[in-house]
Simulated assay, not measured.
Amino acid sequence: MLLAGKNAIVYGAAGQVGTALSTAFARAGARVHLAGRTARTLEDLAERLRGDGGQAEPSVVDALDETAVDAHTDAVAATWGSVDICVSVIDIADAQGTPLAEMSLEDFERPVRIATRSTFLTARAAARHMVRRRSGVILTFGGDGGGEPMRDYSIGGLQVALNAVDFLRRQLAAELGSYGIRVLGLHTGGVVEGLPDDFGARQEVTDMIVGKTMLGRAATFADVGNVAVFAASDLAASMTATSLNITCGAVAD
């Protein structure tokens, strides 16, 4: 198993992306520390992963709470001996469909604040333990890696938030590389199977995402999990400060 013996912390573990990552990590042999704000959903996920033969430890943690994140990470390291993989995929509560010129400041700022704060706090907490062991992998998620604006649909502060996280990823990689810590991004350009059925612009957004791809389909949650396992494993030991393109050809590197 590619991640046997590794401890992986997933913040936002019970969400759609978090579930995909947690499931893939557990299947690859990692002990997955499921962090989120709702105990019941975390327990349900932990039970499912254990039922499939995986190792899972649920904990109620708010990824925006500095004290809570630090305490949880310290507890994982103290109890299980290491923090080897860390990723935050909490919901950043973005407002979409309203043109920027008509959007409130609060709606614009919210995703930027949530994305940068959660990524910084969780990465910092993990890095402090990874530095001592001179190894570890920090992953970020979201966007298409290209930084191109949306021309036909307004996504508010989301693109700004994702590009801010992307630069944070590169800066973390630059500062932590000498300690053997790798920092990688996972870019999908959008996972359409995650769009809610009651989302008014669902078909419009699906057509926009799929229409940009070369493969004629968008990435799936299973794709995200599989690539994350590779990125976190020793097979990707030479990779850092870069993003893994899971856009099905929507972005040509």
Score class of each variant (00 low, 15 high):
Ala164Lys: 01
Gly146Glu: 13
Ala173Gly: 07
Tyr153Glu: 03
Gly143Ile: 01
Met150Asp: 14
Phe167Tyr: 04
Gly177Glu: 03
Ile181Gln: 03
Ser154Arg: 12
Val165Asp: 11
Gly147Phe: 10
Leu172Gly: 08
Gly145Glu: 11
Leu176Arg: 10
Gly143Val: 03
Gly156Asp: 01
Phe167Thr: 10
Pro149Gln: 15
Gln171Ile: 04
Tyr179Gly: 00
Leu172Thr: 09
Ala173Trp: 06
Val137Arg: 05
Gly156Arg: 02
Phe141Lys: 02
Asp144Gly: 03
Arg133Gln: 12
Ala174Arg: 12
Arg151Thr: 12
Gly146His: 12
Gly180Asn: 12
Val165Gly: 12
Asp152Gln: 02
Thr140Pro: 12
Glu175Pro: 07
Ile155Pro: 13
Tyr179Arg: 08
Leu168Arg: 06
Gln159Val: 12
Val165Tyr: 15
Ser135Lys: 13
Ile138Trp: 14
Arg182Met: 04
Leu158Gly: 03
Leu139Gln: 05
Arg134Pro: 00
Gly147Arg: 05
Arg170Ser: 01
Gly156His: 06
Glu175Asn: 11
Arg170Val: 02
Gly157Ile: 04
Ala161Gly: 04
Ile138Ser: 07
Gly145Lys: 11
Leu158Gln: 11
Leu162Glu: 07
Ala164Val: 00
Ile138Thr: 11
Gln171Arg: 13
Ile181Tyr: 07
Ser154Ile: 11
Ala161Lys: 00
Arg133Leu: 02
Tyr179Ser: 14
Gly156Phe: 00
Glu148Trp: 10
Phe167Glu: 01
Ala173Cys: 03
Arg182Val: 05
Val137Cys: 10
Arg133Lys: 13
Glu175Gly: 06
Phe141Ser: 06
Gly143Ser: 00
Tyr179Lys: 08
Leu172Glu: 13
Phe141Arg: 07
Thr140Glu: 07
Ala174Gly: 06
Gly157Cys: 07
Arg182Ala: 03
Arg151Asn: 04
Glu175Ile: 10
Gly157Pro: 09
Phe167Pro: 00
Arg133Cys: 00
Ala173Ile: 01
Gly143Met: 02
Gly146Phe: 08
Arg170Asn: 03
Pro149Met: 15
Tyr153Arg: 12
Ser178Lys: 07
Ile181Lys: 02
Arg134Cys: 06
Leu176Pro: 05
Gln159Gly: 15
Val165Pro: 15
Ala174Val: 09
Leu172Asp: 07
Arg170Trp: 07
Ser154Met: 13
Ile181Trp: 02
Leu139Lys: 06
Leu176Trp: 11
Gly136Arg: 04
Leu176Cys: 09
Ser154Asp: 15
Arg133His: 05
Gly136Met: 04
Gly157Arg: 06
Gly143Pro: 01
Asp166Ala: 14
Gly143Trp: 00
